[in-house]
Design a protein around this nucleic acid. Sequence first.
DNA 1: CCCTGGCCGCTTTTT
DNA 2: GCGGCCAGGG
Length: 789
Amino acid sequence: MSEWTDLRRKVLEKEFNRMNDRQREAIFWTEGPLLVLAGAGSGKTTVLVNRIANLIRYGSAYHSEEADRLTAEDAANMRAYLAIGTELSPETQRDMAVSPCEPWQIMAITFTNKAAGELKKRLTDLLGESGGEIWASTFHSACARFLRQFGDRLGYTSRFTIYDTDDSKRLMKECQRTLRIEDKVLSHKTILNEISRAKDSLITPQAYLEAAGHDNRLVLIGQAYSLYQEKLKKADAMDFDDLISNTVHLFLECPDVLSYFQNKFRYILVDEYQDTNHAQYMLVKLLSQKSQNLCVVGDDDQSIYKFRGATIENILSFEKTFPRAHVVRLEQNYRSTQTILDAANAVIANNAERKGKTLWTENPKGDPISVYTAANELGEADYIAKQILDGVEKNRKFSDYAVLYRMNSQSSTLERIFVKSGIPYRMLGGLRFYERREIRDMIAYLSVINNPEDEIRLRRIINQPKRSIGDKTIAQAAEIAAGVGESLFEVIAHADEFEQLKRSAGKLQQFAALMQELMRASEALSPGDLYELLLERTNYQQYLRETEEETAQDRIENIQELASNIRQYEMDNGEEATLSGFLEEISLMTDVDNLDESVDAVVMMTMHSAKGLEYPCVFLPGFEEGIFPGMQAIYHPSDIEEERRLAYVAMTRAREELTIVNAEHRMIFGSTTRNKISRFCMEIPEELIDRHSEREWKKPEPGTVLPISNRETRSASVQAARHFGPAASTKPEKPKTAFLPGDTVHHKTFGDGMILSASPMGNDTLLEIAFERVGTKKLMANFARLQKV
DNA sequence: CCCTGGCCGCTTTTT
DNA sequence: GCGGCCAGGG
């Protein structure tokens, strides 16, 4: 090794001196395929960010002997940097670099918007403005970008609509009707699942039908698949899986497009590689075929999405697929205590199908794992609530706590107890913002304005608000549309020209005229202004007030929240803001993306959604055979390993305290069952555990809860928790502001009103208020955010 | 055309 | 235990 090379290496090592040896190995290994096996909490995002920074600043300098450009001045500069830490001059940095790359030559792919956003943020923090030129995005949004640009090669316009699962479901039901497939015989769920798997594996409808042979069931699914794709294309729409598979098809069918991107991207990095499916594997393989510079980061032990088509094979056989691949293992954990890691290691060691990795840490040993056995699910929730309140008394924050469960349905008991105990919480999952009916309706309006070919979303809104246009009429119009080869919207706009539609022609054309007016307006107005016009012209809010008894208030608030989302989008994108841009952004958005970390509240979510997150204290309720592992997994022993990986993921979310809870009896699907403690709990060495149970502790009034069965209480709390944070309204012991009959109050949406009655309900008060503008409403005092006037 | 009452069937779900 | 879905009556 020449003196120059040696000097340069030392400088680079110092540049990245905050990394450990293995991390630096991953950062400096720039050329050729690289597999980084990154255990939980091993700092993989940091490695990705620094690896990219190195590629841009120094290229492959670390492993290069090339030193021609280095001058004596550079050498002096480098020695000073090593000796006394003076800054490297930009000239020296440039001279040290060996074929560095431009930011736009790098593509970094993640699975979630959250991960992509964090990556982007850390890249711009480190690299400044130019960091923003890196393609850091999710698989889906990167593919949407490819397809907006080149989708015409596959027969799509650049304005295609992205269908979510609800749209897909409606479309499939449509197909089933046409093909006379009874949902009872073959459900839309089964078919869509099967289609999703087919797309993941890049199997076209034709190929599917060929492979189906004489298997009746498969032939039916194949026919449904075929029709479904036909209808999607006609509607200029793609579902989530299409985004990936169509991109791969585009690349395979148009070598010029592929070669354009192969030349553009010199380096490709993929995060969470263990969760990729076959189509995603093909995508990155194709893109990196020319450069061979593919770096994948993943952890086979954290593969928990097999049920959605992820193949752990991709990571297990990376070295076979890419024979020159270099492998780096990151096993040092910076997150959890040694005890938590020992427990997680012991559990995952029971899996046979793995690369084998043992996490270690320099962190202290920490407290033992708490295992608490409650009498039933109420005792379970009570215990968790008490532990949290105790912790908060000892200076913990609510936001230090996370409760991770196997199924969303486990959350309801916890919610009830949290509301009762005054614990603020935020919950992920369940009904998401963009899945609410009123939000979907408004988005459907915007989609149709953007793309009138979209029949599914057109059908959704044609009679919403009610316009006396029934299913029969719509079906008739759809039939005509199919017959004459026009879109449904065209037929409706010219309803009077068709004999069968004569009777409802007036209503249909009135609706079409409204939409056409909005379409014309959309050309001149910004998305936000268009949305306002839309609300005004459809009278949708008025409609909600008239038809929804209890939920009108929530729904109107949601509609207004959407308005502020659109305005926010406009602010973020300035001149570039377009309607289709906004629609794309929200169609690829999820709940986790909106998780506001600054709010001091306990977080509740499924173990699946918790991947990639970490909390000081974690509760894992429902560690019982039949719940976790679930029934399904117990019947199919091959699924047990995936459940165990999920347990591993869940346990390694905890930094300091981990509490596992099980209940001896539990109400499930309406009947009480008795479950054994989970095998995963038994796999933790006894010496790491501190056991308690409700029975031995003989707590006062175990499992007794105020019967808060009132639906409004619950939904109101969820509402408040989700959108506005807990509004600090549920701090324990906080005296409730008394609202009395006769008081005049102000509400954000409803304006001023007078309280008619106040009746205590659970821990809250139900108020009946006569508003000046909107009449009498019933609201819960804690969540309505009323102000005394 | 629209509302209501009874029946079924239930994991997880980054997009 | 709850919500989604269809059938039948208004």
